[in-house]
Amino acid sequence: MTDTIPTPRRPNPLGGIVRSLEFRMLGLALLLAIILSLSSPYFLTERNIFNILDQSVVIGIVAVGMTFVILTGGIDLSVGAVFGLTGIVLALALKAIPIVLAVPVAVAAGAGIGLFSGVLIAVFGLAPFVVTLGIMAIGRSLSFILSGQRSISGLPPDLDAIVYSTFLGIPANVLFLLALYLAAWGYLTYTKGGRTIYAIGSNVEAARAAGLSTLVYSILPYVVSGALASVAVTFSLAQVMSADPLAGNGLELDAIAAVVIGGASLYGGRGSIIGTLLGVLIMVMIRNGLNLMGVSPFWQGTAIGSIIIIALLAERLINMRSARG
């Protein structure tokens, strides 16, 4: 019976890797690194490389949650506001209870907000865009109210340990970032939950009909996203040692941009955590490089916006060519 199957062309495995999106993004990141190292002698110094990694921590952590959400075909516009709000919650908590209790409180607050959005979206079928837009407005408003419209400083000095302690010469926050990406990659690739998240984004009807727990895994990404926004703000607070109610303004757009540059489809089902990491690094490198070259920071938006559009356009052109088959 075997001879009746029309045989599709077999792609050779190496070609598969070369054609994969992560590979192209890696190429883009390397190209960018070469250009920037040619234009600035400081770019490739060890100090600057750690600088880039350090600057990637906050946006990198938030982008992991955003990847989970976007893989299901959703979007989370509230992460910037949740970042700001849970930063205030953390700062207020730090004044009352020890660090080891205050951080879990803040993370639980972020996860709780995510759970609320997720339930509205998955159980009541509201549009993710609208729900998280609402949460974004509420979150920002509450952070102003809770903070009394000013920054909260005077945080316990021990807090900076989570940023400035090192292991094998690597700062703790960078280590955390890498560990988080490794864990997220493993989860999304090798677990039932991770694959269900992909299946939901790719075809929720088929996922439900196949008996997968679509409800649970439609909500979970928003919980992860909210929790990670508050994890990110913990690292941010430890660096600046004060909580600003305006903190994280526009962070959601940076996170979405990183995920999209990393090759994820906003329709869901397609994308990877490695792509997101490359997307984060590409964005941070552009900012860093432009700074080193002394370009006005106001040009950063133009540069990043152009990269997003060029990356998407290139992707579309490549897909158009291969999809005709």
Binding site: Y198, S202, N203, A206
Partner: peptide, 18 residues
Amino acid sequence: NIVPDMSVRENLMLAQMG
């Protein structure tokens, strides 16, 4: 039935995984 972004293997194992 089909999850388009997934491989033959994952499509085959989908219900089993659930």
